[in-house]
């Protein structure tokens, strides 16, 4: 069955045009993972190869529960990196995500989650994140994550978000809302602060049916 599946993926890759050079042939001796196809043809289903949930590490959510990124699996996730003391850009990113949530049909909502990851490992502890969620009236679909500096830097790499600590304890950062499919693969990035909820909603609709 697994072979059949990987054949199917290969076939899709071939038809859709592979976006990455094929991975070198995996040697089963050392790799426990199944052989990969590097298929990345949008909007065909992806192998989990590009999932950011492969990033190891333990995070704390706003309820002070330990979570791995893998627990986000199964839903389409709308993700942004922010910090709660941010006065200008971050509230707009959060608002954009709320607009997306509000625009979804009732049937769609259950399948979509929202994730805010804080740059501010020092000030944004779980309690502060909980407080922020309440201030912003974020419902149960939202997860706010606190990590250590290393994990935050690694995640920023995978989401292609740039940031830099400033002298006053705040952060300079690029603004992006990233949509992950149910496997955790980034499928769309809304760059900047010009809201484009309509585009996101089309994407989410497509990803939910996959």
């Amino acid at each position: 069955m697994r072979q059949l599946l990987s054949l199917l993926f290969l076939a899709i890759a071939f038809v859709g045009g592979s976006c990455r050079r094929q991975a070198s042939v995996a040697t089963p001796s050392c790799c426990a993972k199944p052989p990969r196809s590097s298929a990345f043809s949008v909007p065909a289903p992806l192998t989990p190869d590009a999932s950011i949930y492969q990033l190891p590490g333990v995070w704390l959510d706003q309820h002070n529960h330990s979570v791995s990124l893998n627990t986000l699996k199964g839903k389409v996730q709308v993700v942004a990196m922010i910090f709660t003391h941010c006065g200008y850009a971050c509230p707009r990113l959060v608002q954009e995500m709320k607009d997306i949530e509000d625009s979804l049909s009732a049937s769609q909502r259950a399948g979509v989650g929202y994730v805010l990851v804080s740059f501010d490992t020092r000030r944004d502890d779980p309690a502060r994140l909980q407080q922020y969620a309440e201030e912003q009236r974020l419902d149960g679909h939202w997860v706010l994550l606190h990590g250590n500096a290393e994990e935050v830097r690694q995640l920023s790499m995978l989401l292609n978000v740039s940031y830099q600590p400033a002298a006053d304890g705040n952060f300079n950062h690029s603004n992006a809302v990233v949509i992950l499919d149910r496997q955790g693969t980034p499928r769309q990035t809304l760059e900047g602060l010009s809201s484009n909820a309509a585009l996101a909603i089309r994407t989410i609709g497509r990803l939910e049916t996959q």
């Binding site: 070198s24 995996a26 040697t27 990969r36 590009a50």
Partner: peptide, 9 residues
């Protein structure tokens, strides 16, 4: 290893 590395990394 070259043949094992996770592609996102």
């Amino acid at each position: 290893k070259r043949s094992c590395v996770t592609r996102i990394f």
